[in-house]
Design a protein around this nucleic acid. Sequence first.
DNA 1: CATGAATGAGACTTCATTCAT
DNA 2: CATGAATGAAGTCTCATTCAT
Lengths: 209, 209, 209, 209
Amino acid sequence: MGTTRGRPPSADSAETEQRILRAARARFARHGFRATTNRLIADDVGITPGAIYHYVDSKAALYAAVYCETIDQVYTEFERAAADHAALLERFTAVMRRACELQALDPSIPGFIVAVAQETQRHPDLLALMAPQRGRHASFFSGLVGDAVANGELAPDTDQRAVADLLGAIMTGVARIAHAAGDSERYVAAVDVLDQLFTGSLVVGGSPA
Amino acid sequence: MGTTRGRPPSADSAETEQRILRAARARFARHGFRATTNRLIADDVGITPGAIYHYVDSKAALYAAVYCETIDQVYTEFERAAADHAALLERFTAVMRRACELQALDPSIPGFIVAVAQETQRHPDLLALMAPQRGRHASFFSGLVGDAVANGELAPDTDQRAVADLLGAIMTGVARIAHAAGDSERYVAAVDVLDQLFTGSLVVGGSPA
Amino acid sequence: MGTTRGRPPSADSAETEQRILRAARARFARHGFRATTNRLIADDVGITPGAIYHYVDSKAALYAAVYCETIDQVYTEFERAAADHAALLERFTAVMRRACELQALDPSIPGFIVAVAQETQRHPDLLALMAPQRGRHASFFSGLVGDAVANGELAPDTDQRAVADLLGAIMTGVARIAHAAGDSERYVAAVDVLDQLFTGSLVVGGSPA
Amino acid sequence: MGTTRGRPPSADSAETEQRILRAARARFARHGFRATTNRLIADDVGITPGAIYHYVDSKAALYAAVYCETIDQVYTEFERAAADHAALLERFTAVMRRACELQALDPSIPGFIVAVAQETQRHPDLLALMAPQRGRHASFFSGLVGDAVANGELAPDTDQRAVADLLGAIMTGVARIAHAAGDSERYVAAVDVLDQLFTGSLVVGGSPA
DNA sequence: CATGAATGAGACTTCATTCAT
DNA sequence: CATGAATGAAGTCTCATTCAT
């Protein structure tokens, strides 16, 4: 029951670490960095708070570890989803749908991601530890927009950063709603509406964008 | 009223309270509820932390007071902006532009608002205190969508909640980017792109949504 | 008795601070920096550990505050004691006797001082905070030796640093014994022997040094 | 013994224990008992902290083991050094010179010894474990003084404990300076000055003590 | 109306120690 | 003989809150 002192009968280090990362992601997503205490995570995992320090050096490093793992997973998925399409808005919709799937898989994935920007603003010390994967979000969206300009789909004088900003904002905005509602269906429904908006079928009498 | 004899050297009560609310909003917007300490706010105002308790009962009540005041101001503005237009997407764009203006006026306004959903999820005890203005956001967007259905602009079988979700998500998503960037210009640029998206002029060969 | 929350009936800030410094000096002298806990000091004073942070920024800063106050007091006394004599060994003996008096006054004074060198070696972060009074010990002894060379009492080619080292070592060595024994009498007795050693009356048949 | 078949790859038990004791002495000398962690020692030796418990029962027992071994070595040396001389101050000087040699051999030897008194005061639980060698210091110095009284070198009414205190204080005082400075030369220089002080050649016009 | 001394709960973190392997 | 996962106690420090003044 964990009340004994020495090494527990069956401790698989790698598995415990994964459990810590999962629990941490869920807590960080729900309560944020500050309000997530080591004890909360430890209780979820079934260990004591000090044991976390066998796996990471600090709470900030734990956050960074979750960040790196999650960002890598998510943007790798996004890149695959985008690869199946050519047109900008189609690619974007495909990415949004993939995000829905990830959310259904583990709601803490988008929940964690959409909060990253705020957390780093509030706790700038996190930035240094997150270095390995930082910029992945920005480069993904600017890549999407850059391709569209190269394709001739967007005019050459388009404000590319603004387009990337808007797409990123829509994605995190929708993900946030889904996360707040804790409801995958609602996520899908909002993406469906987005699709209609893009194809011109939302508003009566509209035409494809 | 000016009728009191020997007006106090500097501070009358009402003004101090306003200064506290302003400082609190800015801090809550930047650092979040948890990381904002009473001392931080008090230092901004030029008083001591204990003095805050003359105006509010607790830190949570301070948050709620800021919330009520800000939400009221913002959605009153939004209602006015929406009143000038008839079509759904035009009304929404007008609201977004009004949001830009508010951001230029005081960046902590949208900064505070976009964080509300997260804060309440993280600190559910806030909810009770925020009652007076809760639901204002939801009812504003569902009102917008309901009007469009009534107008015949949206089909009667439209998933109204999903449309409201999407519009709300876009607004908070964009506002968040602007807040993170600390840059009003970028806000306006993203809204311009949104406008182009709606009018079909973003993508080459596109038509109005 | 301290169980209430708010401000205690009669809290004299300056007096509380002095009580903290006294208690801290005694604990630092007896247990050292590391083993002295804030709780130990707080219990001595009759406050809670957190209250210490109203007066100093950290435990290290508390150590430094004790250091600066104590060093100043001690070396000011030593300078006075030395001023009454001309010959090196007489001056040194006078200083040693003054040290005995300080020890009788408050045994934690020499107890704290003799441990300073070790503590700073073990916790180098203390050094920065101790800056205002650092070097006072070294300059006092090198001053004593320098005067003796100037007087012609010591040969010009004397290794001055070695003489200063030896005198300093004797002083801290004797103080340490006295502190360990917790016995003022023993301190005085050892200094008496030192005096005899200097005047040649210790060893049968000896002559003045 | 080399007779065991297939000698273990690298470490035989006795050698590992010696390495632990050496590493522990160095760390205790430099950082003190409290600040020396088992991990620090283990890292020096190239083992894990838990392995230490195969050789000693606790950190305190490790300290005591270092103490007993070191004290025995040092005072055995001192007894030999004293045996070569007859007069008190000559014997004492010889002991001081032997201490210099030990310091040159391994600076942690005097470094550890001079801190013993403080550590035992700070952590009285150590005392019980140190029993086997406790009193060795005191008996050595009182032996030295007792001999001098027996010789007629010191008057019969001399305060013997005070003389022993003074000599012990000088020795630990000088050793501490050397340890703090990390400089063997400085140790020797201070002892040379002490010699001059004893022989009356330090101060111009002085005569032998 | 405001100060500021103080509390007490709780945060992160360290570390000696234990014990299954 | 040794590892390393884990515990639990303790330590420093922060902060919302209270209350005499």
